[in-house]
Amino acid sequence: MKKLFSLFAISLAALLVGCSDNNVPQEGQQFQQLPDNLSTYRLPQVTEVFSLNCGHCRKMEEVIPQLEELTNQSIGKVHVTFNESAQVGAMIYYTAEMQLGGKPDHDMMTELFAAVQLGDGSTLTEKKEAIDQVFHSRDLISPYELDEAQQTQLFKAMHLADEITQKGEINGVPTFIVNGKYMVITSGHQDEQGIANTINYLINQNK
């Protein structure tokens, strides 16, 4: 009887824990506060920090439409510039953004990832042609065709992105900035639903 009672007690305790509010995102596991408040940069409420050279970012792009639906947000984008390959990716991304007046749509982002991450056996000429095609198919100027004034505009956008990632001390991508105050730890989630839950939780911390 004692063994049966102990088993019952353990099962009851497990049930109570399972019914508790343990699905609330935890600081240090699913998110962390940023060292600096980035609200002054007027970022969208939810902003993805990414790089076109990052394979994980490419996979994240596949679920961005679902995340936007689950969070009821139009997710903004900031391209990192923390190494040489990221700087090249940022030049490509911001060349598109400055001509479009905003972030590229999901289809264009998918094509940009594919062009930048063309197979290892591809030549520089082939990669350039793939990038040119993404822009020219939309009647846009490619990063290789910018005049001096456009290059100045591009470098201003890149400098701003660099400031944001440095002040936020963001050293890994992809991640999401919420309310300019929090960073989502994407590795602390199993799927896009979990990421969306954390984003929604953090959005409500601003209310």
Rank of each mutant, 00 (worst) to 15 (best):
L124F: 10
L124Y: 05
L124I: 10
T125I: 13
T125D: 15
T125F: 07
T125W: 08
T125Y: 12
T125R: 15
E126F: 06
E126C: 08
E126G: 06
K127Y: 03
K127W: 04
K127E: 08
K127G: 07
K127N: 07
K127D: 10
K128P: 02
K128G: 03
K128L: 07
K128I: 09
K128N: 12
K128M: 05
E129D: 14
E129S: 12
E129W: 10
A130L: 09
A130W: 03
A130E: 13
A130G: 05
A130M: 12
I131M: 02
I131R: 03
I131D: 03
I131H: 01
I131Y: 02
D132W: 02
D132H: 06
D132L: 05
D132S: 02
D132Y: 14
Q133P: 01
Q133C: 06
Q133N: 05
Q133T: 02
Q133Y: 03
V134S: 02
V134A: 02
V134K: 07
V134C: 01
F135Y: 09
F135P: 02
F135E: 04
F135L: 11
F135C: 03
F135I: 10
F135Q: 03
H136W: 12
H136T: 10
H136M: 10
S137V: 13
S137W: 10
S137Q: 15
S137K: 15
R138H: 06
R138M: 14
R138C: 08
R138T: 12
D139W: 00
L140I: 09
L140P: 03
L140D: 04
L140R: 04
S142R: 01
S142E: 04
P143S: 07
P143K: 08
P143N: 11
Y144K: 04
Y144D: 06
Y144M: 07
Y144R: 02
Y144A: 02
E145F: 11
E145Y: 01
E145R: 04
L146V: 00
L146K: 09
L146Y: 00
L146I: 04
D147G: 14
D147R: 04
D147I: 13
E148W: 04
E148T: 15
E148Q: 13
E148Y: 08
E148A: 12
E148L: 10
E148I: 08
E148F: 09
A149N: 13
A149F: 00
A149E: 07
A149L: 12
A149R: 11
A149H: 14
Q150S: 07
Q150I: 11
Q150T: 03
Q150F: 03
Q151T: 09
Q151M: 13
Q151H: 01
Q151I: 14
Q151W: 03
Q151G: 05
T152V: 11
T152P: 10
T152S: 11
T152R: 15
T152K: 11
Q153K: 12
Q153D: 14
Q153I: 09
Q153S: 09
L154A: 03
L154Y: 00
L154I: 05
L154G: 00
L154C: 00
F155E: 13
F155V: 10
K156F: 07
K156V: 13
K156H: 10
K156S: 11
K156Y: 08
K156Q: 14
K156P: 00
K156N: 10
K156G: 06
K156A: 14
K156M: 13
A157G: 04
A157N: 15
A157E: 15
